[in-house]
Design a protein around this nucleic acid. Structure first.
Lengths: 137, 137
DNA sequence: TATGAAAGACTAACTAA
DNA sequence: TTAGTTAGTCTTTCATA
């Protein structure tokens, strides 16, 4: 991970469809260099995947979920990855155990997701926070 | 947004480099249809951007930040987007105002980021939670 | 790093609902 | 009029030297 790698990643983060040729001329290296670097970054797991950032609904939110002491948070979390409108499921340290990042049509749908979370027998508490604005680092 | 759109998005979310021809044959439509749909989804803002999910460090964390009553959270948040290792800056509702999603080399670096956040004069409180595991929805 | 070959994406004209 | 298809062309990526 040197400076060139970081610059390539910056460009890809903003637009992963930028052609290697364009990245190359921007950074003043050859197309092959960019391609080799990207391949290596992928092999090394620095690039986890090429993906799309979407906004299918009008409301993004974090639903924080706390599960009972004696249950495996992973199995609860795994189940939630299958729910519609759930973009990410994070296992986190701290007060609550799981954070769902969701992208829903409206607040009613968010509410339905909260209800669904609360209906899981392992879930003892939820806290929800709307994501009012998102900016790229 | 019909079922075909959703299926295309699912595929792209998992691998945005899947060729249109491959998506097309998986979903039993023509390559042109996939391309037209993707273009439209992009124009409509459903696809915000093509990007890479990265893990440059070994520790991901949420740093929650609370700012003083009388300041504009946006200006504080905007400043933080420029910091290294910050992937996202969210303005959120609820107890704290801003969530930084960071990807740092180690916990020492996370700690340095927390310190940096606390050094901002508008910041009155921080809470940090490590992201122990991340799964795609 | 440079080049030719292969793969993929794009243009535009056409068809069907 | 809108969505889908197809054929031909152009661009990007890939493999090799």
């Amino acid at each position: 991970m040197d400076d060139l790698d970081r610059k390539i990643l910056d460009i890809l983060r903003r637009d992963a469809r930028t052609p290697y040729t364009e990245i190359a001329s921007t950074l003043d290296v050859s197309e092959g260099t960019v391609r080799n670097r990207v391949d290596r970054l992928r092999d090394d797991g620095v690039i986890e995947r090429f993906t799309v950032a979407t906004r299918t609904g009008n409301v993004k939110a974090m639903i924080e979920v706390s599960v009972a002491m004696d249950v495996d948070t992973h199995s609860v979390g795994d189940r939630m990855t299958d729910w519609d409108e759930v973009d990410f499921v994070w296992q986190v340290s701290g007060e609550l155990d799981i954070v769902l990042v969701v992208d829903a049509a409206d607040t009613t749908r968010v509410n339905e997701l909260i209800t669904k979370a609360r209906e899981q027998e392992e879930v003892v508490e939820t806290k929800t926070r709307l994501i009012l604005d998102e900016k790229l680092g």
